[in-house]
Design a protein around this nucleic acid. Sequence first.
DNA 1: CTAGTTATACGAACTGGTACGTTAGTTAGC
DNA 2: GCTAACTAACGTACCAGTTCGTATAACTAG
Lengths: 215, 215
Amino acid sequence: MAGPRTVDTPERVRDSARTRAEILDVATAEFAANGYDGSRVDEIAALTRTTKRMIYYHFGGKKQLYIAVLERAYARIRAAERQVELDDLDPVAAVRRIAEVTFDHHGAHPEFIRLVSIENIHHAEHVKELVEMVDLGGPIVALLEDILRRGRQEGLFRSDADAIDVHMMISAFCVFRVANRHTFGTIFGRDLVDPARTDHYRAMCGDMIVRYLAA
Amino acid sequence: MAGPRTVDTPERVRDSARTRAEILDVATAEFAANGYDGSRVDEIAALTRTTKRMIYYHFGGKKQLYIAVLERAYARIRAAERQVELDDLDPVAAVRRIAEVTFDHHGAHPEFIRLVSIENIHHAEHVKELVEMVDLGGPIVALLEDILRRGRQEGLFRSDADAIDVHMMISAFCVFRVANRHTFGTIFGRDLVDPARTDHYRAMCGDMIVRYLAA
DNA sequence: CTAGTTATACGAACTGGTACGTTAGTTAGC
DNA sequence: GCTAACTAACGTACCAGTTCGTATAACTAG
C-alpha cells in the first residue's frame, strides 16, 4: 500500500497493481452477486475509483475479467488446502480434518461457491481455460490419496473408495449447504448457514465421510 | 412471400392450453440452458410456433414466465416423491429407497437441477413467491419423519438426526453430482454422470445415508 | 541535473447493437 | 358481431466495447 517511490500525493496516484486489485475485488463481488450475464461492466467500473476504460485496458474485456476473478478465487482455496497440517493425525482424524477445512473454507467464502455455481451454468467454459494454466485438483487429490492409502494399510477404510470420490462427497455436502441455502431455507424453513447450527453441520459432515469410509 | 392460409395447414388451430404448454417447454429448456439473464424472450419466442407477443399475452412477462417454469419443474419432483412405495420396507431399506429415488430423479432431470442452481443465484426470490402458493417441502419431510420414527423405535437409527437434515444430506449428494459436474469433471477429469458410473454413485449415495444414520 | 522523449496509466463521451416490452391491427370461433 | 387468440413491427433503454485525447512516471542524452 505504501508508495514505492515518492511520498507525495497520498491518493490518486498511478498504480496499476492497485487498480487491477481494486477492479478484481469489485468484480468478484459483482459476478458472485449477479452472475456473469447479470453483471454490468459499467456497474463494476462505477464501484471502483477508476473507469470502465481501465477494465478494458487492464483485462481486455468482460470475459477475461471474469476468468481473472475465477483464477484468484481458486488460488485462495488451494492456499487453504496447502496449509492443512495433518502429518501427526491418524487416517480417520485426517479425513475428518480435511472435511472440516473444506467445510470452513466454503462457509467463509460463499462468493467462491457462487462463482462455482455460475461457472457450472456456463458448462465450466472459463474453468476449462484455467485448467490449461494451473492444476486445480492435484493437491487435494494427492493429500487424500496418501491418507486413504495409510487407512487401507491399517485396515481402517473400505477398499472401494478412491480419493476423487471422497473429495466429491465432502464437496457435495459443503457446497450444497452454501450454494443451495436460499431455496432450501425457503422450502424447508431451515437456514443451513445459521451460526447456531454451524457446529452441528461441521460434525455431520465429518461423521458422514468417516462412517462412509469405515471398513 | 408466404401464401395465405389457403393450403391445408393441419394444425395451426387456436388452442391457448397448447400454446402455453409449448411456450413453457421451450422456456424451461432456455432458462435451464442459459440462466435467467442469459435467456432471451425473443429467442424463446422464435423456438415456439407462436410469437413473442403471446408470451406477454399468456404469462405477463419474462419473470412470470420463469416462475411458471419453476412451478412446473417443482410439481414434477413432488409427483415423483408421491409415487414412492415403501410401506413394506424396513426403515433402513426405506431411507435407501428414498435416496435412490432422489438420485434417479435428479439424474433424469438435469434441467430441474440447473433451474434450482439459477434460482439460488437469485437468492430464491422466485421460489419465495412459489412457496406462498404451494408447500414444496412438506411431502418429503413427512415421509422421512415417519421412517426415522420407525427406525429410532427399532433402535436402528441414531437419535440426533432429523428428517430435514437427512433430506439435506441426500440432496447434497444428488444435486452436486448433476449441478457441479462441469467444474468437477474439468478439474478432476472424472465425469460424475457417466452412465458407466451411475450404479456406483447410486450405491455410494445409499451407503452414505444408511451408514450416517446407523445407531 | 534537467530537458526532451517515450511508455504506461487514465478518463469522458460515444457507438452499434441488443433486448424487454408495447402499439396497433388481424383472424378464428362461438 | 363479439371476444379470445394471435401477429408484425416498433420504441426505448441499456450495455459491451471503442475512440480519442490527456496526464504522469520512467528513461535518456547532454
